[in-house]
Design a binder for these strands. Structure first.
Lengths: 151, 151
DNA sequence: GGGCAATTAATGTATATACATATAAATTTG
DNA sequence: CAAATTTATATGTATATACATTAATTGCCC
């Protein structure tokens, strides 16, 4: 559902004001769909994000800090997210030999298999969410970049 | 900071995949800035949203349901948000005479004054966040509409 | 009018998040 | 090399959110 219908408002102060509402609204929709999608795998979108980061490093370990700096929203709970994934046996966490402040985090075979399973349907899912031509998608990316670049 | 720098990733599967990351990322930045902005008024962005909805109805009362359906993200805690604003004396809540299941919610003079104060700087703040030409802003709105329309 | 489904709001609960602080190890500095 | 500083991670706490459930009231249908 488009913004106007969703919030029952047809007039906006200006296009910039509407952009901000639309951005938050649309991102919220996308986030909700992603949450629903990943629920079938007992993951949150962020947990999936972390697993993908770990796969990118595999077979090398990653530290909590490395995961955190690559996460989409860098809040302070990478620790707890990782703990959750460890409980599900999707990653291992052990003290780093070289720097005992750090922990070595490695995705497990279970984690890799889960990602492989998700891979099968993930691209289709993303294209369903972002139903845009390549050129529209590129335009959208560049406009979003304009915003994030100045914040 | 742009997406690529923020998540230290320069290659994406395709433009659609990047759009989804970019959308969540940029909306997160905007949301964080809004949270920071409203903190000076001891409000959350959602609380501000609720106050504006109530001002739109003033001097008529609004029900919890009406507020909820106009909110940007319609979660289930409109009740609790309203309770918070009542504690701050920014609105009043009383049983609705016509339908005793409902409650009549009205913004107080304190609430209206607070909004008036925020109004003074809010447009500038929004233009700083969405630094786009009118035509770019309109393009962005239409691309976001394309996404939300199909979800 | 009595019983039942639908509506409205509030609450319970688990998890997520923001922000501050704590703890421990490494690094710098005098 | 000891003290102070910085860095890496974990934890505490308050609030936010998603989702399910409850409680009260209304409207409907017979």
């Amino acid at each position: 559902m488009k913004l106007e219908e969703a919030i029952k408002q047809t007039k906006f102060n200006n296009a910039q004001h509407k952009v901000l509402l639309n951005l938050i609204y649309t991102a919220g929709l996308v986030h909700a769909e992603q949450t629903r999608f990943f629920k079938a795998y007992d993951l949150s979108p962020q947990q999936f994000n972390v697993l993908r980061i770990l796969r990118g490093q595999h077979p090398n370990p990653a530290s909590v800090g490395l995961v955190q700096e690559r996460m989409l929203d860098q809040m302070s709970n990478a620790s707890r997210l990782i703990e959750k994934l460890k409980q599900k046996k999707l990653l291992t966490r052990r003290e780093c030999k070289e720097d005992r402040r750090q922990v070595d985090i490695v995705i497990t075979d279970d984690g890799l298999n889960l990602l492989k399973e998700i891979d099968k349907v993930f691209i289709d899912f993303e294209h369903r969410l972002a139903k845009l031509s390549n050129s529209d998608a590129e335009t959208l990316n560049s406009l979003l970049d304009q915003i994030s670049h100045t914040i």
